[in-house]
Simulated scan of single mutants.
Amino acid sequence: MNLTMQLIKALAALSGKPIRMSSVAAPDDDPDSIVIAPDPAAKISPSRNSRSYKGLAYADHSPKLRMDILTPQGPGPHPLVLYLPGGGFVSARRMMAAKQRRYVADAEFVVASIDYRTTSVGATYRDGLIDVATALQFLRGHASEYGVDPDRVAVWGESAGGYMASMAATEPDNKISAAVDFFGASNLTEVAAGFDAPTVAAYTGPKSAIPAYILGPGRAAADHPEEMREADPANRVTAQTPPFLILHGDDDRIIAPAQTARLHQALRAAGVDSTRYVLKGGGHGELSDTPQMWSSAEIMDRVVEFLRAQTSR
């Protein structure tokens, strides 16, 4: 576990909303997913050729929020990828996945990464989605400055960021061309289904960040089923939803794999192009015993290939 993820776990614990890992894995039996076994030793080797802009204020409504941008050296405009970090809805630190973001920038994408509001400042997912929309507006408004093609825009996130990417992609006003979801949640009332009893209790109890981020503090998910349903990206899918690439580890002990399977099936049912890979032996990104899988050449090349296909002119 790297230092950033250790910090996220520490911040979550200090906030009273700790990130818990189940002692058992939850089953995944989706019939329309592809099982792969990436070689963690086959690592990506990103260059440092992209231009880097760090700490840009992008939201007048919340001046502390910042954005980092990587732009390719070649002439633009380039398709844009907006990266949304995870952090258990407690933290969202834009510096995450630095190596992977540089790798995508090397493939001739502008890659932006943002802080967005979480429970640490009393925010809900609606606030976070406003931040995402504001970031997209900022980037489109400064398209010539950063070499962005405003009509070719993708979102990519992991864990809580995967959930936010899915929610942002199912918002038509964002005009998203493609979405990449690494082990994000969907039906947050059942996010721990299949895990051990203490983990289920921790995810649904009063100290969990999940109901707080969806409903606000002091409100229980069981008392507000309609609001929880509205916060499920699978329930927001339409025929106009953009294509998705979804990846989940079969040994994820934090977000049950059935969560992304639910979204995948909703996309397919609506006629939306969706590909879901299940990583054999894969855990929850950096919060696992197999973090190298998620930055392996096989995984990141699949991401780049998907983004190229969906954002080509």
Rank of each mutant, 00 (worst) to 15 (best):
V155E: 02
P172R: 10
A197P: 10
V191I: 13
L188T: 05
S159K: 03
E171W: 15
G194Y: 06
M164N: 05
A178I: 06
S186K: 06
D181K: 00
A165Y: 04
D173T: 15
D196V: 07
D151Q: 14
W156G: 01
Y163M: 06
A193Y: 02
A178K: 02
G162P: 05
N174R: 09
M164R: 01
G157R: 01
D196C: 07
V153D: 03
A192N: 11
S159N: 06
A185Y: 04
Y163W: 10
T189G: 11
F195I: 06
F183M: 14
A169R: 05
I176S: 02
V153M: 03
W156S: 09
K175C: 13
V155L: 02
P150C: 04
W156Q: 04
S166W: 00
Y163S: 08
D173K: 13
A197M: 15
G157N: 01
E171G: 08
N187C: 15
D149R: 07
K175H: 08
A179E: 05
F183E: 06
A168S: 15
P198W: 12
A178W: 04
N187W: 03
W156C: 11
A185W: 01
P172I: 09
V148A: 07
R152C: 13
T199R: 13
G157P: 07
A192P: 11
G161T: 04
F195Q: 03
S186Y: 03
V191F: 09
V155Q: 07
A197Q: 15
P172W: 06
A193R: 15
G161Y: 00
